[in-house]
Design a protein around this nucleic acid. Structure first.
Lengths: 157, 157
DNA sequence: CCATGATCGACAACCTGGTTTACTATATGG
DNA sequence: CCATATAGTAAACCAGGTTGTCGATCATGG
């Protein structure tokens, strides 16, 4: 058995695992008062962080245009997860910060991710999970997380 | 150090690894005569397979509506990757099959995925990679691969 | 001190891909 | 022979991303 699996299975497995985590986390979120957040939003909140940011900065962190970041912020503002305030030191900028609701969502999702990780550690053993993560770090060295999934996946150009 | 990484890193690592593979494969494809295929298309080709399928069947396999499948097929047909023919046994159905170009693309991508897998095996060691794949299979047991990434990622639940 | 250039946020037009709803054509079974 | 189910297509719409543009506001160099 030199070649147990065809090479195309590896990316599928990676993605299935990714999706399994995200789905589990969002099932958790729905159960804890955040039924309307989309998978994307979690990453946006993470990128905003507790100290706030601006549209341009958010765009850079997520690897999308500032316009796209602005649209996302507008949507999140309407849902009550973030709020915008003028920057006292620079009238061009608008500070984007998480509301209490946004902070709560971030806390719930952090707990959820930790719980999932713990469950996985229990399933395959903590040392196996640690090895898995170490190997992933080696193979896909830590780049910034980029959020342009739809465009990346579907558009090439 | 009981908890070396916060739980939210795990999905990010998984996705980064997934993306690294896909990007490498498509760089390969671009170098071998298929510069205009998008990440999505590879999965579509895989779902069509060498024996062909229909729009409805394709939609089921990819977890998207038959209309979306039809649109994708139309695009691929225009690019010369698939062709449609009437089903002699059922005048409602239209058989979708890969053209020679489509088959070639599938072959190139298969070779590419194998090469990437081999490279990874070399990097972390074959037994580590085997362990990684075995663990992923355990943690995200083999579901059907679903292609509705854009909608899934961005749609509410 | 001010002109020039860079930066921030917003708007508009457009693209891709997905969804729902609706309709036609063809099978199939009571 | 008719009722129902299925295959494919089209239209209208939505979400999210992109580029291009613009006004307002800094920052800097002459």
């Amino acid at each position: 058995m030199v070649e147990p699996t065809p090479g195309y299975e590896l990316p599928l497995q990676l993605f299935a695992a990714f999706r399994a985590i995200i789905d589990a986390a969002h099932a958790d979120l729905a159960r804890h008062g955040h039924p309307d957040v989309k998978p994307m939003h979690g990453f946006v909140f993470q990128a905003i962080g507790t100290s706030g940011t601006t549209a341009v900065e958010l765009g850079k962190r997520l690897g999308i245009s500032k316009q796209a970041a602005g649209k996302t912020i507008a949507g999140l503002e309407q849902q009550g997860y973030v709020e915008r305030a003028a920057d006292p030191g620079d009238a061009r900028r608008k500070l984007v910060r998480l509301t209490a609701k946004g902070v709560d969502m971030l806390a719930v999702s952090a707990r959820s991710f930790d719980a999932i990780q713990a469950r996985w550690a229990q399933t395959i053993g903590p040392e196996r999970l640690a090895a898995l993560q170490a190997d992933l770090r080696t193979l896909a060295p830590g780049e910034v997380f980029r959020l342009d999934i739809p465009g990346w996946f579907g558009a090439d150009r």
